[in-house]
Amino acid sequence: MSDVARKRTIKFDQSRKQKSGRGPNLKIAGQTAMTVKDLYKSYYKGKHEVPVLKGVSLSVQSGDFTAIVGQSGSGKSTLLHLLGTLDAPDSGEIHFEGSRIDSMSARQKERLRNREFGMIFQFYHLLPELTTIENVLVPKMVQDGFFKYLANKRKYKKRATELLEMVGLSHRLKHKPNQLSGGEMQRTAIARSLVSDPKILLADEPTGNLDSQNGREVMDTLDALRKHENLTVVMVTHDDRLAEKADRVIRLENGKVA
């Protein structure tokens, strides 16, 4: 990551401290952010049951960088989707900041995904019709009604621009995803995941689709953000070198934590 971007990050960090007391940077390290108890999940291919998770239990500490590793097909993505409430487990419990989230209503889950979780995917998952900055603003649009959004548009835009500057994309605000490189798209996705100040970042192989140069840049960006905002990060990865950087490594084998 360039020096400029790093400087911006620090500047941004200071401004946020002045603005509000809320934010991941105020969280005390060592507290448990997420606990998973005895999680089971199977897929069905017709009548044939494919058990993927067979009793996974783990906990994620606030401010930690947790890596989930395992062989392909071991159920890492499945686990992450369950953590992010995109899917429901067959049995078991998931707690986030003390409350059980897997049994929440659809509305509450939507709210959680929109405000508390930031999600990054292997294939970026940007909306092709929207520009970079619009893509970053989507969580805000989803969060607010029409008029509330218009009223706050200026504020949101400023925040989105700051985030895009942080990830080094200030010169690509009006580009559509198909005009961006893979790394640029992934950095846009990172900016999007951070726009609503999430408490936890769930990343599914964010560098899996990038070459080593771009992958490193993305990792650097994530690392810097994590450190400076004291973010809790759960990242699924293949790459052992990336896993080494993590505070904690969880290895999935045969549907269980090894």
Binding site: G84, L86, A106, R107, E110, R111, L112, R113, N114, R115, M119, F121, H125, L126, L127, P128, E129, V138, P139, V142, Q143, R192
Partner: peptide, 16 residues
């Protein structure tokens, strides 16, 4: 379909 998945992952309700 994919865009719909993205929107839902970002917390958009089905109604929306």
């Amino acid at each position: 379909t994919k865009d719909i998945g993205i929107l839902k992952a970002l917390g958009a309700p089905s109604r929306g």
